[in-house]
Simulated assay, not measured.
Amino acid sequence: MLNMCRSLVVVLALGGAVAACAGDGSRESTGQYIDSATITAKVKSALVQDPQTSALQVNVETFRDTVQLSGFVESQAMKSRAEQVARNVEGVRAVRNDLIVRPKQ
Rank of each mutant, 00 (worst) to 15 (best):
C21N: 10
N88H: 05
E74F: 11
L69C: 04
G23A: 09
I34N: 03
S7F: 14
R27E: 04
Q105P: 15
I39N: 02
Q52E: 07
Q49E: 10
G15V: 11
T53G: 00
S45K: 10
Q52P: 00
L47E: 09
L99A: 11
D24E: 11
Q57R: 08
T62V: 04
P103C: 11
Q68V: 08
F63W: 13
K42H: 02
A17Y: 07
A17D: 03
V60R: 08
A13L: 15
V73T: 13
V92G: 00
A17M: 13
L99D: 15
R93F: 01
L2H: 09
R6A: 10
A82N: 11
A94F: 02
A37T: 08
S36L: 03
K79V: 06
T62H: 12
N3K: 11
G23F: 13
C5I: 13
L14G: 05
V92S: 00
A13D: 02
N88Y: 00
V10F: 14
A22H: 11
G71A: 06
V43G: 01
E61C: 01
K42W: 01
L47Q: 05
L14Q: 04
T62I: 05
V95Y: 00
G31I: 07
A41M: 05
Q105W: 12
V43D: 01
R6L: 12
D24P: 02
V58P: 09
V48R: 06
N3M: 04
E83K: 00
R81W: 07
M78N: 07
L47I: 10
C21G: 05
L56F: 07
T62D: 11
A86I: 00
D50F: 06
S54Y: 08
D24T: 10
L8P: 04
N88K: 08
E61H: 09
N59A: 07
